[in-house]
Design a protein around this nucleic acid. Structure first.
Lengths: 203, 203
DNA sequence: CCCAATATGTGCTGCGTGATACATATAGGT
DNA sequence: ACCTATATGTATCACGCAGCACATATTGGG
């Protein structure tokens, strides 16, 4: 017993609900929930705000639907990579590669909607954003210098790539910030960090 | 020739500029730049907004000073750990441990101001935030399941801790999002990911 | 043909934002 | 004492925000 067409009464929609949701998802993906204003959504979806509210409920409801759509499309392909290959290493590699490509697919990279969606993000020219990025770059340089020194002292294999290692540590360090705010317990993070260092710099 | 006391004219300040800056830093640390309102700053610093503008210039100038203070205090102790120990592994371990403790030191964990400062973050009860955290938790579970399967198939050492490994991958994955919006190039990230997987899951 | 039901567009509301104008208060210089 | 310079507190500005009231338009059912 499939659902009947239901023969809806009243004036029909003049826009495609799925396409409108897709447009909304892209705006949310780029700017986060708080960083996205109704006027931006109105412009991107090409619908006036009362129609948005009528069709989706509220800004928050719209966001939730957008996230579900994201998970079902971009997100699921990344997760499929995890189970597609029989070999764990290949599976992990292709999953991470898939994620990186998804996050950088657009003109202005957006990262992961699930990870950054609750966060505002101003324009790429935002002086605050640029300022902070410079601060982070300094840390990356310090890490590479420290690793280079270790390599010269013979603590690391001569063929070790200190810049790639620094990039690894930097990524891990950035991830820690997300996790702490997420509420991941301190012991869990400390254990993960121990494991990370032990594996990254084998004796 | 040290700088003369300068014998400032006019009505003197009734508040301690450094303490006010410290208070501002804490608010920015907790809520990010956009997420912090002037009224929050007024409440935390115990100064009316005209005095804040007179003493610090603008909200953005105040934020920059707050970040510099952060780098000079909390940030520098983390970075000192990197050079304190002669052994690279110990140095990296203690740096990461120091960072984790700094990020989780307060009632509500704040992560790193440098990493998250350009991003808004609502209250911990924010339904949007909770919703997204749940989505991320699902990914962590999927990762652990995949790794457990691999362990059972003998692809991983029997003593491997799939949950700790999943936590590691999760942290790395979260970090990738930060890096992509930072503008780190795709090849750099892909290389770091390759290196990460190779080291994390040794044959 | 008229009614009920749904969609659309105009224009608004109350609120919080970052920032400031203005009058007043308090200091040093001469 | 008077002038200049700085700090403070009140009260306010114009603006953008999420959301909605209301009238109008367009459909199917009877």
């Amino acid at each position: 017993m499939t659902k009947t067409p239901a023969a809806r009464r009243g004036r029909p929609r003049t826009f495609d609900r799925d396409k409108a949701l897709q447009s909304a998802m892209n705006v949310f993906w780029q700017h986060g929930f708080d960083g996205t204003s109704m006027s931006q959504l109105v412009a991107a979806m090409q619908i006036n705000s009362p129609s948005i509210y009528a069709a989706f409920g509220s800004k928050e409801d719209l966001f939730r639907e957008a996230v579900e759509q994201y998970v079902a499309s971009d997100g699921s392909s990344t997760m499929q990579a995890l189970t597609a290959d029989d070999d764990v290493r290949n599976a992990l590699r292709s999953m991470l590669a898939n994620a990186i490509q998804t996050f950088t697919r657009h003109d202005e990279p957006r990262g992961c909607l699930i990870v950054l969606g609750a966060r505002h993000l101003g324009p790429i020219s935002d002086p605050v954003r640029t300022f902070l990025r410079d601060q982070r770059e300094r840390i990356r340089v310090l890490l590479a210098e420290r690793l280079l020194k270790a390599k010269q002292k013979g603590e690391l294999a001569p063929e070790a790539d200190e810049k790639a290692l620094a990039a690894c540590v930097m990524t891990f360090l950035n991830g820690i910030s997300i996790e702490t705010v997420d509420g991941t317990s301190q012991p869990t993070l400390l254990a993960a960090a121990e494991l990370f260092v032990d594996r990254l710099l084998p004796r």
